[in-house]
Simulated assay, not measured.
Amino acid sequence: MVVKRMGIVWNLRRLRTERDMFQTTDLIPALAEHGVHLSREQVYRLVAQVPQRLSMDVLAVLCSILHVTPASLITVIESHVQVSKRGPDRGVAGRLGSWGRSRADAH
C-alpha cells in the first residue's frame, strides 16, 4: 500500500543569508523592532530547525523582515511511501520483531 506523506522545507536560513544576515543573532534586533522578543537560543532553534509549531505573529514578522511571503519560508514536500500491510497489531514485541525478544527467546 502506498501512503502520502507531507513534509516541509524551512527556508529561513537560506533567506536570511541572501539578505546578508549571516549570524543567527542578526535576527534578534529585527524581531524586537516588531515586538517579538526571543532569546538567543530560541532564535537559533528557529533558524536551525524546522519549527513544529510557529505562531502566526512570528511568521508574519519573519515575512516582514525578509520581505517574503509564507510560501517563500515554507516549501511543502509531498512523497509517496510504500508500506507493508500487516495483520492485527501484535503489540510492541510484534512490531520489534527479533529486537523485542531476549537472547534466550530468540534461540
Rank of each mutant, 00 (worst) to 15 (best):
M1R: 07
M1H: 05
V3C: 07
V3F: 09
K4R: 15
M6Y: 08
G7P: 01
V9L: 09
N11V: 01
L15E: 13
L15I: 08
R16F: 02
R16Y: 03
T17I: 12
E18T: 06
E18M: 11
R19I: 09
D20I: 01
M21N: 04
Q23G: 03
T24G: 14
T25I: 13
D26I: 03
P29Y: 14
P29F: 13
L31P: 04
A32R: 15
A32Q: 14
E33K: 14
E33R: 12
E33N: 09
V36F: 07
L38Q: 02
L38H: 00
S39N: 06
S39E: 06
Q42P: 00
Q42N: 06
R45M: 13
L46H: 02
A48F: 01
A48R: 11
V50Y: 00
Q52A: 07
R53Q: 15
R53M: 15
S55Q: 06
M56G: 11
V58L: 14
L59F: 05
L59P: 01
L62G: 02
C63P: 02
I65R: 03
L66K: 05
L73Y: 06
I74Y: 02
I74R: 03
T75C: 00
I77C: 12
E78M: 04
H80T: 04
H80V: 00
H80S: 09
H80I: 00
V81I: 12
V83P: 02
S84I: 01
S84P: 03
S84E: 15
G87Q: 12
R90S: 11
R90H: 11
G91A: 08
G91E: 07
V92Q: 08
V92Y: 07
A93P: 00
A93K: 14
G94K: 07
W99H: 13
G100S: 09
G100T: 09
S102H: 01
R103W: 10
A104R: 12
A106N: 13
